[in-house]
Design a protein around this nucleic acid. Sequence first.
DNA 1: ACGATTTTCAGCATC
DNA 2: TGAAAATCGT
Length: 665
Amino acid sequence: MLNPQQLAAVEHCDSPLLVLAGAGSGKTSVITQKIAYLIARKKLNPSKIAAITFTNKAAREMRERVGQLVSTEDAAALTVCTFHALGLKFLQIEHARAGLRRGFSVLDADDSNGIVKELAPRPVGGGGVKPDVLFGIRNLLSRAKNGGLSPEEALAAARSPRELEAATIYDMYQQRLAAFNAVDFDDLIRLPLRILESDAECRDAWRERFRYLLVDEYQDTNDAQYRLLKALTGERGGITCVGDDDQSIYAWRGANPENIDQLGRDWPNLRVIKLEQNYRCGKRILRAANQLIANNPHLHDKKLWSEHPEGAPIRVLECKEAEHEAERVAALATTLAEKHKARWHDIAILYRGNFQARVLEKALRLARIPYHLTGALSFLDRAEVKDLLCYLRLLTNPSDDAAFLRVVNVPKREIGSTTLEKLGQLAQSRQSSLLDATRSDSVLRQLTPRPAAALASFSGLLDELRSASLHESAADLVELILKRTGYAAQIAASTTDASVRERKLGNLKELADWFRAMQKGGNSAGDLASQLALLSHADRDEPGNAVRMMTLHSAKGLEFRFVFIVGCEDGTLPHEGAIDEGRIDEERRLMYVGITRAKELLTLSWSAKTKRYGDVHNNQPSRFLHELPQADLHWQGKDPEADKEAVRETAESHMAKIAAMLAGG
DNA sequence: ACGATTTTCAGCATC
DNA sequence: TGAAAATCGT
């Protein structure tokens, strides 16, 4: 079942292990088999094993696959979660060491952006903070946090006036979070790290708690995450990191692929095993991928090989314009379905930027091809879901001012910005949270009567809900909140059309169902809200049998029989900004990731002309196309005959469908 | 407090 | 170009 390299990776437990796992080389098998091996052969208690991933989706898949190898009991005892979920777990236990009280909140990106916005210096001419200034500060702040720096350290490390300003804001920002009894996403890594690095007693306890760590997508770790792993592992070296330097495509958001080499510096007894047999792609596709990536500098040479058949040549569609390209892709997808009996979900269309999806959608709709956009709108980003989670946060953690501000006037309670600003000042002067302030008669007396009454009734409502939360299940609590806050009524009364209303109510019902499903663990509603803050969209609704459309980034880790990569143009892939800044290598890896998604047939396409922000842009084919083995490519020019052929095929298939419908109905 | 108008931006996007 | 946010005006 396992090849010799995979087996070696599974059985090597005596020193830290780095597994350089090429695309499609069975890395998940290695991790899951190794977990089973540690339990069965090394007699390790499953509760002492942690498998760490980056996404919830990966964690869920890992749990599923490991569930097939070990007993239900052992599977339940394992820790299989994301870095951030691990950090949350840590802080829920060690909250006191981080200066947090029980029931602390996890702020999402919007909440923390809101805080930064408030703290950022207002331009002298009045008005709001400029978005790019805000963005810059957020960036510096996140970088400091990802580097594991405390506000004091960031202040000391600041070199430029901008960094100094950001560090000052960082300090105020953390004070604000402390007042809210809240942490942000970055803190879920940074705070555990700080505790582990400074508190030997705690560190020893956690090293005992987790005897073996397995890390997936290791090339995506940032500095703080690496230090967390290092602190948790210690000299004993019970760690296996699985990653692929050629699939490092997240440097732009702080991932540090250098961590791959850092491992050997920190543990001189590191063992390195390469997995080079690919079980996914045809030989041709693999040859193309290898030749492309050979243009990147490498510390560890790695050459993927496959026992699969050669496969069809890689097609390169040369198109006049983007509309054209989309039509041809749609026509070819139809051909695949008809002539090659492909299911729609065997087909994926990949692109560099989300904006490219629009023209493709249009063409697919026209060709009556069902499609699904991955990673478009997030379930948890829906306003109604967020509102409800904020109600739960506020019930668990009355200090959570961010949640208070979000829901205090939702649904409308005639509490406007003027009132809230005043309330904010009063709360600050008496050193209390906003919610606490609304309970004080002296505070209410200093406000105008109407808003004061509205605030008082709001806090009364929350008190009522809080007492209900003690004996209601989380799912019932959701229903109760909807009813008692008038949220459900507001949705029902909204003037928007019925489909929107239904969708909102559907989302909320789904949230309640979700809580019901998660209830088993005996978690409180607040715990569930914290965990939910860490969930993302990718694992939502099942796309069913539909063509999958997504960015190259979100395609990582997936595979499809038939893959189209559109927009292979210089300026798009590689992206213009990346060319300017000399960051071609990461773009090339992105292309590499895209190519290696294809199992059977790969089709690349580019357009000579694309509309860019209104005006027309002339393109050159992507330099990456020239880096591929030309003997394996089949260039299909923009000659009109090819198009006619495609259009005719689409038309024929329509006729066939209509005929079938008529015959069937 | 809300709706109309102007301005701005356009790359990926986890937790 | 077009969507979303910021600003303006009532």
